[in-house]
Amino acid sequence: MARVVVDVMPKPEILDPQGQAVAGALPRLGFHGVRDVRQGKHFELDVDDSVDDDTLDKIAEGFLSNPVIEDFVVRRVDQ
């Protein structure tokens, strides 16, 4: 078994209204100096050792993210 993390983020040129809403709320809560917030998704997958990197890329690119609007990063992490 291996732990795999997939992070999916909106592409830089895509409007991220959720991140903007968070950024807009911070000064109201008394937190200053945060210039920008972007909000994405974080997936944790427990996979069998038989699952190779190519398969993980296919899962991330073809399903967990939409390449039209999102970028993704796949990484294996120590448990």
């Binding site: 895509i14 209204p17 959720q18 809403a21 939409n66 609007i69």
Partner: peptide, 17 residues
Amino acid sequence: LCEAGLLPGALVRNHKL
């Protein structure tokens, strides 16, 4: 249809949420 690749582009969260 966009997710299936039959149409181009994508639909995302409304700008005012």
